[in-house]
Structure formats: structure tokens, C-alpha cells
Design a protein around this nucleic acid. Structure first.
Lengths: 197, 197, 197, 197
DNA sequence: TATGAATGAGCCTTCATTCAT
DNA sequence: AATGAATGAAGGCTCATTCAT
């Protein structure tokens, strides 16, 4: 039933989606939707939470705290892009609509905040593993930039079905990590666990 | 009057915003809104176009084609962050709304597309100035990542009023350009025209 | 100015016609319409009355009380069809709209009533000039039929511009008249299957 | 429910009738009207079509193609007047409304056109049964006149409840018919002041 | 005097939500 | 438990009507 709701919200948008549409898509009657999920806001919230959970768990499942932070980051990014690619509708509902649809923006901001926090922690772990301490604000800004870049590439991936999430993740890591300057010099960052594309 | 519309659309969202709200906020009556701006779609479109124009011109004004591509990129990013910071309702919110709200998504996708194209061109100029040719798809993906990072940092800036757009722009350039790896080694990218923060 | 109003009412219909349309068509501004003619109802009423007067005077102008009733009737019918043909818009406003548009139906019913009364009088004059007295109710019904036939032919004329009002009037007189003449002689049409009343 | 709509449209006129009025009159809520009949135009069209069908079937039911044309004509006229008299709101008013109210005028013109065609055919059958051929245009004009006379008498009947539709129909047939009979014999009414065409 | 500018009021239409079955 | 049927409430849009200039 949530699948139907996610699909309808994704195709029509929150307001344009009617409870009739959702019920019809789910193959049940409208009062059942109300009985099981409640009012429209509740339905949307349930969608958001399920998709958020799916995404979070998809990422958490590939994170091995025992590995080096930058490996964790790379694996997480790959999982993120993969998950978004596999659940395009969910991504649409989660990020493209909930973020701008009151009263869900707050909920979404919190979810995104947790994601950024996680990235911040990993990034801090990487940067401070050696060398001089990098200010926390600096690390936080970098995490925001990294998450934004990931979101944008997720969109880009959706329009380029021939690109693999893995390759794209690697490309972003390359870009961010070694720096364009190094790219120019022909250097390439190569993760231990997989070949660069 | 457009200011009122922008404010209401930003706070309530496109659908939740009623023409009454806009008229009341503007201090005029509803028929006047219809007389001056037309139907609701037209009002929203006018808002988006005004903000887009403002942003585009703000950026174009600081781009000097005679300078090196990476200087242009840096200046453009600074202008972008500054402009978005000064008109939070105007751009950041409206922009996200329009991207997911039919029938504006197409218009917005085109605007964003032009932005990404410009970034792609500059990025290509930088990367291919010296060293081996970088594949176009690679450059394009990088441009997408860069634009996404910029958008995300624009949001971040809004929550950190004590940060200057200039410093944030420089930080992003640093991060992207030299690469975190270089940062670790204490290297810092230093633009010719201004100190890094 | 009334011409403009009649034209607009005729083309758009009473409700679909806006005061703006009328003012624009008249080449003046809306407040002037209100100053000279008053509210919308007043404007329409003024149109109706002018057209009614025009039609009535057009008919009255050719009626010579000194002539035989049936000559008067014939001349009146010719004038009626001619006038309607020359002022198609006025006819549209008068008969096709005012009759069904509250609160003008009463006014129109009265005007039409006067017309029918006149026809009834003439018809009575003709029928009772010689032969047995024809009951008043009978005469009144004939007058109604005659007026209805005239209205219908007026519409028909509008769609057949190559027909002359005179020929049409003569045709109707022919059609109607010979029936009445037989009535006078005591002839009665008797259907085979049922008795006449 | 259609009854309520017909009543309201007849009393207030198409534009002045509000969907609220119709719903209230029908004893249901407005959304039900939309659910069952659709938008306002659809409601009106449904009303017109039901009444038109009722009238047409009422007439068709008494027409026996095996009988002589003039018997068919007489029976049809009787049925017409009876039917209209029994459903005053249903036909007379709605009919006149629809004739002048876009976008229904076309539909109505077609219905009326079919009626006139039928009358034309019957009339032609009568007139050409014996004697010289009467020109088609002449017959068509006569049919228009006859239909108009019928419509007018239908109105008259409504205001004279003590008159029976049968008697009125017979009276009109009498009036019209004897004229036609004379036409067949080559008799022509000739006004003193002008030649007949 | 003549008008541009402004508005109050109303109508069509839709949809989230709930009973009665 | 499940649903067809019903509605209250609200929003977009228009237009007759009136001031202030």
C-alpha cells in the first residue's frame, strides 16, 4: 500500500495526488487507506519515513566501522547512489518533495541533518587522521558540499541510466579526494577494494 | 507585489499558497493580482523568472571572460553564494519548489541546465588547459557535482550568518580544486586576487 | 452607445457580455456607461426598449387605419419582417434573449402582448367583416399562431438572405389567408379519423 | 435530480442558476450534482436532452406512417401541444433558453431542424399528393411558419388552462389547412396594393 | 467631465474526510 | 472488515460597480 502511495506522490506531487488516486493504485477503497494509514499527511509521512529508513539502512549495511574512514565514506556514497537509482520514486518523494512541502520540511531537514553529521564524522576522521587539525566548521562545510554533490549526482544518474552508481561514486571520490589539480597531473585516486573506472 | 508573492510562495509552498494570501500580503485585493500578474501559474512563473534573472545577472556581472577559467569559476561561485544569501526566499526556496512543481519543472530544469553548461565549459577550460584531455562525460559529471555542492553550501550559509559568502566560496574552491588530499598535506590553494580564509 | 450595447448583447448574450465589452465597443470608458445608462440591467432594458420602439414604430408607420384590416395586416407583417431583417442584432436582443432572461421576461411579454392584441384586433376585423361572428378566443388563438409564424419566419429569413421580406410576407399571407377565407365560407377541415371540436 | 435542475434553470435562467440552487432544490449536496451529472454545461445539456427526448418520443409515439400525411401532421401537433403543456418548465422555457445560450444553440438548432424537416416532409406529402408541384422552398417556409405557430400556441395554451391541446391543435389545423387546400386549387390571395410574388 | 485603478461578492469546481450499509 | 455514497470547506477566477484623480 505504501508502494502505491509513493508511486502516486512521486508522479503527481503531494498536492496533486488525491486520496482516490492512492486508493485506486493500491487496489483498495479509500476508507481503507484512512483506516490503515490515516489522513493524507500521515500517509505522506509514512512514505517519507519508510524511504528514509530504507536509504539509511541501505547505507548503514555497507558501512564497516572497522575500516578506514575514507573507505567507509566511499562505500556509503556507493550505497547511496545505488539505493537512489533503485528507488527512484522514493528519492523523488523524499528529497524533491518533502524538503519543500510544509509541514514535512522539518522532518526532512532532520533526516538530512543526520546524514550530514555522519558524513562530517567520517570526513573529520579522514582529515584528522594525519596532519594538522582541521577546524570543525571547515569539516562541516565540506560535509555539506559533499552531500550536495552527491544529491546532484543522484539526479544526474537518473538521467544517465547507462552510468553505473559505482562508477559515479568513484568519480566523485576521485574528484573530491585527489583534487582536480591532481587529475590534471594524471594522478588518480585508487581505492583499495576496487578498480577505478 | 512580486515580493509578497515570493514571500508567500516560499513560506507556504506553491499549492498551499492561496491567491488571497498573496493579495493580503501585498496589501491589495485579489483582482489586482489577477490584473497585474495574471493567474496563479503566471504569478509563480513571474516570481521564478525575476529571481532567476536576478541571480543570473548577479553572476554574469562578475564574470570577466578575459580572465582564466578558474578565476571566472571562483568569482561566479562567490557571486552565486552572495546573491542566494541575500535573497533566501527568492532563490533557494522558490528554486526547489519550482523544480518539483509541474508545470514549472521543465522551465527550471532548463535554467539549471544552462548553469551547469556554463560550469561545464569553465571546468573543461581549466582541466584541459594543460595535461591530458579529460573525457566530456567526466567533466559534465564534475560540473553537476560542483553545482550541487554550491546549492548545498548556499543552504548552509543561510544557517551560518557569521560566515561570509566569500570565505565559503574560497573554501569550496579549495576543497574541490586542490583536493582534500592536498589539504591534508598542508597545501592550500591560493587565488591570486584574495587570501584564503 | 446603445448601438454598441445592442451589438455586444447580441453577440455574447446577456450574461457573457461584460460592461467592459460594451464600454470598449462604444469607445468610451466604463464609468461613462454607468453615468449615462446606469447598471447593467438598465443598459439592457434601454436596449430592449429602443428596439421595441423601433419595431413598433416601423410597423405603425405603414399601418393606415383607413385601409381594410387585411391590408393593414399584410403591410404590418411586411414591415415586421423588413425591420427584423434590417436590425438583426436588435431582434436577437429583443426576442431571443429578453424573453428568457429574468427580470426582463415580463417586460417582453407585455410588448409581445401588445403586438398580439393589435394582430387580434385586425384579424377580428377581417373575419367579422362579413359572415358569422367568430368567437373571440378563436381569434386570439389565431393571432398567437400568426405571430408565432411570423417570428419563426423572421428567423428563417435571417438564414436566407436571398429571400426578400416582401416575398416572405406575401407567402405567409397566402398560406394563412386562404385558410381563413374558407373558414368564412363555413368550410372546415375534418380529419378522417377524428371529429373536429 | 434532473427535475430539480430543469426547474431551477427554467426559473432563473442558465447563468443566473447556480449549482448551489440546483443542489439545494434537489435536496442533495453540490458535489453529488457533479458526481452524477458533471459540470454545469453537462447538467444543462442533460436537461435539454431529456426533455427533447421526451418530446420527440411523445410525438413519435402517435405518428403512424401508414396513415395519410395530414393525419400524421395533425396527430403530431396534438402530441406536441399536449406534451409541452404537461411539461411547461421542461420544454418551452428550457427550449428557448438553449436556443440563445452558447454553446447549446447549435445542438438546439439541430433538434429544431430535425423537427422542421419532419414537418416539411409531411407538408410536402400533403401538398403534392394532388395538384401541381409546390416548390421546395415554399414548402420549407410553410413548415417554418407552422412550427413557429405551434410554438406560439404552446405558450398560449399554458396561459389558458381551460383550453384542451386537442381543440387547439384542431383549430390550428383548420386555420392552416384550408389555406393550403385553396393553394392546391390554384387560388391565391392577392393584396390590393401589390402583386403577389 | 472622464477615467484608471481598485474591490466585494459570488460562482464553478475539487478533494479530504466520514457515515450507513 | 470493507465500501459506495455523501459533504463541508476552500480555492481560483471573474465581473459589476465605485472612487480618486
Amino acid at each position: 500500500m505504501l508502494d502505491a502511495a509513493v508511486a502516486v506522490f512521486s508522479q503527481r506531487g503531494y498536492h496533486a495526488a488525491s486520496m482516490d488516486d492512492i486508493a485506486e493504485r493500491a487496489g483498495i477503497s479509500k476508507p481503507m487507506v484512512y483506516a490503515y494509514l490515516g489522513a493524507k499527511e500521515d500517509v505522506f509521512l509514512a512514505c517519507v519515513q519508510r524511504e528514509a529508513t530504507r536509504l539509511m539502512e541501505g547505507i548503514a549495511g555497507v558501512i564497516d566501522p572497522a575500516r578506514r574512514p575514507h573507505d567507509q565514506l566511499c562505500a556509503g556514497l556507493r550505497a547511496y547512489l545505488t539505493c537512489v537509482g533503485e528507488h527512484r520514486d522514493g528519492w523523488s518523494v523524499l528529497y524533491r518533495q518533502a524538503r519543500v512541502q510544509e509541514p514535512f520540511a522539518g522532518e526532512l531537514a532532520e533526516i538530512r541533518g543526520r546524514m550530514i553529521e555522519a558524513v562530517t564524522a567520517l570526513l573529520g576522521g579522514v582529515l584528522n587522521a594525519e596532519g594538522p587539525e582541521v577546524p570543525a566548521a571547515e569539516v562541516s562545510a565540506m560535509a555539506h558540499a559533499l552531500v550536495g554533490a552527491g544529491e546532484s549526482l543522484a539526479d544526474w544518474l537518473v538521467d544517465h541510466p547507462d552510468e553505473s552508481p559505482e562508477a559515479t561514486a568513484a568519480r566523485l571520490m576521485n574528484f573530491i579526494w585527489m583534487g582536480a589539480a591532481n587529475l590534471l597531473r594524471g594522478h588518480t585516486w585508487r581505492p583499495a577494494s576496487q578498480p577505478s573506472p
